[in-house]
Design a protein around this nucleic acid. Structure first.
Lengths: 123, 123
DNA sequence: CTTGCTTCTGTAGCGGCTACAGAATGTATA
DNA sequence: TATACATTCTGTAGCCGCTACAGAAGCAAG
């Protein structure tokens, strides 16, 4: 119902980002609408790449007095900067890798890609 | 000399992607040019995002008979596809996150970002 | 000969799950 | 009702690629 794996839910419970679930008399966990909503919130945040500690903070802010939008925005921006940095690095990596693979196009016995990786220089 | 952290070198030794280093009589590791070159190779591969098992394969291929360029290329392409997939996902994530943060621009007491994350729908 | 730096080994921690084992409980069919 | 099968329970260990200790030992400089 939340789209979160059952093992992951229990992990979240251990981590304290969702409350200890109510139990049936035999000890099985029971979840209500509020629990499911919270799990969906957590899932959306995870899908956006927020860390578990960040999500904890977001949950605290959302439970807070209401004057927290600036804090939420700050956290979001910080995360966005991180994502952009990663995006940039991954782009560089992609170009380097594509260039390396491209050299292998002509059929030959020696391997330009390996040679390049094995070369002395860093250039 | 290789640019690889000393603890990481020992980890690589444990993982078997570099050979057990020679030792001084007192038991300290000694590295020659070949060891350093191998470490630099490993570092370049890691910087390109290859996994340790992939690097093991690349090292085996580079030590092989020479007819391995096609295999190297295949491994490189496979990795490149993975990188492009990640790049794509990260780009989507960046757009979604930027949109969420942008909504917070107007100063207000409620928080559009939190509201969106808390909303029932997945849209 | 002391001081302080580096290395040694072995082990545990990081994040965010995931995968078991083995017990118990629940549901569906015969 | 009996039986089979599925699901959940707890607790623990594994994944990746390091990184960070603790405590012992070696080594160079003053």
């Amino acid at each position: 119902m939340s789209g979160v794996n059952i093992e992951t839910i229990r992990y979240y419970e251990r981590e304290g980002i969702i409350p200890l679930a109510d139990r049936t008399p035999s000890g099985r966990r029971l979840y209500g609408d509020a629990d499911i909503a919270r799990l969906r919130f957590v899932k959306r945040c995870r899908d956006l790449g927020f860390s578990v500690p960040d999500i904890r903070t977001l949950l605290e802010l959302s439970a807070g007095n209401g004057a927290s939008c600036a804090d939420v925005k700050a956290l979001g921006e910080r995360h966005l900067h991180g994502v952009r940095r990663k995006l940039d690095e991954l782009g560089k990596l992609e170009r380097a890798l594509a260039e390396l693979v491209r050299r292998c196009d002509t059929g030959r016995t020696d391997c330009p890609m390996l040679e390049r990786l094995l070369a002395d220089s860093d250039a």
